Amino acid sequence: MKNTQAISAFLALGQETRLNVFRLIVQRGDKGLTPSEIIEKLGIPNATLSFHLKDLLDAELLLVERQSRNLIYRPNAEQVLKLSEFLLDNCCGGKPCSLVQPLQKAKAK
């Protein structure tokens, strides 16, 4: 991951509404959520949600898929994992570390 990609992700998550939207979508995992479900759960206006979803998509933190007339938003787990690896890159001076081992196990799956 490049610095610019990490900065984009951090900027997207650095706003409270976007962070709440992202966390809600992560809670649903690969089932995802439609915009109407997000609006219902968070009580934010449609236009506001569209603005925030665009930023999360631009940061590659979300994936979107059209199913019939609905858009389904899911977390981009691969990108989140890359972001975590970026943050922990060279943790403990490159020596084996208990912080990184769970990430390596998750990546191996």
Score class of each variant (00 low, 15 high):
Asn3Arg: 15
Cys92Tyr: 15
Leu103Gly: 04
Glu85Leu: 12
Glu37Ser: 01
Val80Thr: 05
Ser68Ala: 15
Pro75His: 03
Leu63Asp: 04
Asp30Glu: 15
Asn20Ser: 09
Ala6Ser: 14
Asn20Arg: 10
Pro35Cys: 00
Lys95Leu: 14
Ala106Ile: 10
Glu60Trp: 03
Glu60Phe: 05
Ile25Glu: 02
Cys97Thr: 11
Ser98Lys: 13
Ala106Ser: 05
Gln5Lys: 15
Val26Leu: 05
Arg28Tyr: 13
Asn70Asp: 15
Ala59His: 02
Leu62Glu: 07
Arg18Leu: 06
Arg74Leu: 14
Ala59Ile: 03
Ser84Cys: 07
Ala47Ile: 07
Ser98Glu: 13
Ser36Gln: 03
Thr48Glu: 13
Glu40His: 08
Met1Lys: 14
Gln104Thr: 06
Ser84Leu: 09
Ala12Lys: 05
Asp58Tyr: 05
Gln15His: 13
Ala59Asn: 03
Val21Gln: 01
Ala12Glu: 10
Gly43Met: 09
Tyr73Thr: 10
Glu65His: 02
Gln79His: 11
Ala59Arg: 01
Asn70Gly: 11
Cys91Asn: 10
Met1Glu: 13
Leu57Cys: 06
Pro45Arg: 15
Arg23Glu: 04
Ser8Lys: 13
Ile44His: 11
Leu81Glu: 02
Gly14Lys: 07
Gly93His: 13
His52Trp: 00
Leu33Pro: 02
Phe51Arg: 05
Asn76Tyr: 07
Gln27Ala: 14
Lys41Leu: 12
Asn20Ile: 00
Ile38Arg: 00
Asn76Val: 08
Gly93Val: 13
Tyr73Pro: 09
His52Thr: 01
Lys41Tyr: 05
Asn3Trp: 14
Pro102Ala: 04
Phe22Ala: 02
Ala9Asn: 02
Leu81Pro: 00
Leu103Pro: 03
Arg18His: 06
Pro75Gly: 04
Asp58Gln: 10
Asn70Tyr: 15
Gly29Phe: 03
Ala108Lys: 09
Gly93Ile: 13
Leu88Cys: 07
Leu62Lys: 04
Ala59Ser: 09
Asp55Ala: 12
Ser98Ile: 12
Leu88Tyr: 10
Leu33Trp: 02
Lys82Met: 07
Lys54Phe: 06
Lys2Ala: 12
Arg23Leu: 09
Arg23Val: 02
Asp58Cys: 05
Glu60Thr: 05
Val64Met: 06
